[in-house]
Design a protein around this nucleic acid. Structure first.
Lengths: 249, 249
DNA sequence: CAGTGGTCTAGACCACATG
DNA sequence: ATGTGGTCTAGACCACTGG
């Protein structure tokens, strides 16, 4: 069925005193949550949609704007507005290795390596790792997908001297744990984890399939080998509501 | 000095090809961050401001909208747009009692009790406390202020039967720890903490001095006496970026 | 190329807060 | 009573995407 008729199958209630844009917002949200407009669906053009609701583009866009900031829709310039994959919340647990923390999500997570390069260590990462800024470092940038949906992006730093064979060890299974094993680090653990919130950069919005400037949560973590030997600095970002962070001391 | 002349002291650069609303956004943000427009300042009316920038209200409002979602401005209907207190980030630590977690903020935090009432325990809180839903419960709703700025709101539940003397014990110093002591609970600790993100309800926006539907972070925590005896369920909310959550396993 | 979303204009009416 | 922000209209031009 044509998505226009699904959305504007009946006119907005007449006597309703709530704002028009809110009514449209509710209608769209309800249709998306009911699964009538599944992820990936392209909405009718804003001109048509506004016409179908008997309102103006400006008013319609106010409804779309909220749905975009909530991550339910993504607009692609020149292409159209698409129903976004629902933020399927999964749980990250503090103080555990990632694979342990996955729990019931284990089989549903896939990883895409976005960047693997060498560069001088930035001051912030240097402080976290207890190294001087500027030393040779390895940058690993990855995207985690839950059931194929982009949900979590990480940007990691390692001391290059400590992992001379990083690229080769990583290549086999795209596994950082493999890299550690290959460099005589059998076990590691989480030292500290910080969680904050802010807004997506342009690049983050693009890779996470979010509207520009959508609200996100950020995590920075330090992992260590043995007791007090930091080896990994990790900065992660995910759409607000896509991930639940769990700390069980 | 009049705030209009401070903001629009010079016209927007002519040849600039960035969007007008983005230029205005940058200008305002810069003025606020530089302290030229201190918290509490009332901005000139949108009509005047738009005129001063040589643009329309609609365009100006796009800049204001972003600043509001970022928590730098708050608009009060019929009154004006005000510079909000900058989200002064403070740190919550997992697995510690609140007073221990405060650290360097200890002297700067004040507490306002918003509600203290009795009600049947809701299902969600009941599950967390290991009690059947509907048993008599105590609801404590408080607002934390950092240097007088609203930064953190909590909504707690306790089993009423366990704290028959809650109101009296709490009254003296507005301290939950006092209540525990008065009921023979000398020590307690954090069992689990969950962090998620979403958007402010109308009530939350009002008490936290935020724009409607501003993005927020949420924390739900369970505290226990002894080893496995949950006594407190706590749901907190704060503006995105106002609080940093720290987990050190 | 046609259609899309992003930006922008120039008005209007309203409920509300404040003096 | 005045001014405020919130909503809404009815257009316009642009850069971009896709077929």
């Amino acid at each position: 069925m044509d998505s226009l008729t699904v959305i504007a199958d009946e006119p907005l209630p007449a006597g309703e005193d709530r704002f028009v844009w809110l009514q449209i917002y509710d209608r769209l949200r309800q249709r998306i949550e009911a699964g009538v407009l599944p992820p990936g669906t392209r909405l009718p053009g804003e001109h048509n949609l506004a016409g179908a609701f008997g309102t103006t583009r400006s008013t319609l866009r106010q409804a779309l704007a909220r749905l975009q900031s909530e991550g339910m829709l993504v607009a692609r310039k020149g292409a159209g507005v698409y129903v976004r994959d629902r933020p399927a919340t999964y749980t990250i647990a503090a103080g555990r290795r990632f694979s342990e923390a996955l729990g019931p999500f284990a089989g549903r997570i896939t990883t895409r390596t976005l960047r693997l390069e060498r560069l001088p260590l930035e001051p912030e990462a240097a402080e976290a790792l207890g190294l001087p800024a500027g030393v040779p470092a390895i940058r690993l940038c990855r995207l985690r997908l839950l059931d194929g949906r982009a949900t979590y992006m990480t940007d990691k730093r390692f001391h290059a001297e400590r992992f001379p064979n990083f690229e080769a060890a990583y290549a086999a299974h795209q596994s950082v744990t493999d890299v550690f094993h290959a460099h005589d680090i059998p076990a590691f653990h989480n030292v500290s984890t910080r969680i904050t919130g802010s807004f997506a950069t342009e690049e983050e919005a693009a890779t996470l399939d979010l509207a520009a400037h959508a609200p996100v949560m950020r995590m920075t973590a330090v992992n260590a080998a043995g007791e007090i030997d930091p080896i990994e600095y990790s900065a992660g970002v995910w759409p607000l509501g896509a991930v639940e962070f769990l700390a069980e001391p």
